[in-house]
Nucleic acid binder design. Structure first.
Lengths: 224, 224
DNA sequence: AGAATGCTTCGATGAGGAACGAACTATGCG
DNA sequence: CGCATAGTTCGTTCCTCATCGAAGCATTCT
């Protein structure tokens, strides 16, 4: 017998298919209502409610009541990171790539990770920002540099909007094994991409699809 | 309903207390026999055997038969990383730090992570190696520099012993939120530390306890 | 107020799976 | 060869927990 944090408790919360589907859906970053999550998980509303209660009690979810809606979201980036880690293992040990499929391809290129962009395109972006010394990579900790604020202001992104969370964070990608940009800045960039309609969210998926002109615009702004 | 890697399957494997205990024990890095794992998990041998079968089938474990013993070990660093991630969340959401206790303190300072050293001391070591430009931190990817081989040779560590795995890897710490050195080099350094008896493994725990002279030696070699 | 929607609670049902003892296979020892 | 040790397989028992229908709150709309 051994001591330590109760990892079985946390893992078993993720271990139920219905709950796993819900968490997966919430990896999209937007908070969802109980009914949406029930649909997503393929269970009835009472069942979903029960699961949500357990996830709440387990500390994996937060909830915000707005009128008669209750919006559930992931409790934080650490939880999101854990799910990505589990996804990575599941991907590795899972049925030997039955069919890579276009959906998977799109996911590899660009997808939503909690509230920011992940995938090859996101990794390339971070690399470029670091190479241009707009961001400074120290440890996994990515830091702002002297040029950061002015550079993003020129693009139309205010670096210091929401002061609660760290502005910059690195987040490990499960497809590519490198890091991409998370934190409020990462979130702001994703907002920008969607707002400018450079890309759209694939319905019921974390995939992010760039339009041809959107891809060009993204490359002009972030990869040049 | 949604597609993608079967994360529930993987998580539910970790979600059983007996299996979680086994995996936790294997995070110590040494492969263990079925009986040792049964003891560790607090279940009977048949039960343990059944669990081990499931973990094998799930791809989380590897086994090496030696005579009438079967040594089980984690399937790889990715699995170890996942367990650390889950541990981090469990730590964060777990019962509000009932008593930090000396055991926890020791774990924070230095512990075994799969096959290399983790904890504050390991983080400090990596920082120092990077600051001295003996290792180069690029992305999370840590790379060898021109001075690497000679520097470690002087300490008595051959950087290029086991060519199968990457020599350098960064691994995220759940206590400190920074990275430490993994890969074969990380493993070789831990070997060195234990071989020189600078530190000993706490029995039945991942904690690594440095003796006072061992701590000094470690600091002289790695932190100066 | 009454009706409609969103969600939770309660209670009953049922299935999956964790547990162990007993029997079986395999390796090592004298 | 027997005997001991290490592990697995089998069968049974038992309990947890996921599931849903029905009923109960809460909020908003008309």
């Amino acid at each position: 017998m051994r001591e330590g944090p109760d990892i079985a408790r946390v893992a078993s919360l993720v271990g139920d298919p219905a709950r796993a589907n819900m968490l997966n859906a919430l990896m999209g970053g937007t908070a969802l209502t109980a009914s949406e999550l029930a649909l997503e998980a393929g269970v009835s509303l009472p069942t979903a409610s029960s699961h949500l209660g357990k996830l709440m009690e387990g500390g994996l979810l937060t909830v915000a009541s707005q009128g008669r809606h209750r919006y559930y979201g992931l409790a934080g980036p650490q939880v999101a990171g854990m799910i990505e880690a589990i996804t990575g293992v599941a991907e590795a040990v899972g049925p030997k790539r039955v069919r890579p499929g276009p959906r998977d391809g799109a996911m590899r290129v660009a997808r939503v990770c909690y509230d920011h962009l992940a995938g090859e395109r996101a990794v390339a972006m971070l690399d470029r920002l670091v190479a241009k010394k707009i961001l400074l990579r120290d440890d996994k900790e990515i830091r702002l540099g002297p040029a950061t604020a002015s550079h993003f202001a020129a693009i139309g992104i205010d670096v210091y909007t929401k002061p609660r969370r760290p502005v910059c964070r690195a987040c490990l990608d499960w497809s590519v094994r490198r890091s991409h940009l998370a934190g409020t800045l990462g979130a702001a960039i994703l907002d920008k991409i969607l707002l400018e309609k450079w890309a759209r969210r694939e319905k019921n998926s974390r995939a992010v699809i760039f339009s041809p002109p959107g891809k060009q615009a993204f490359e002009r702004v972030f990869l040049r």
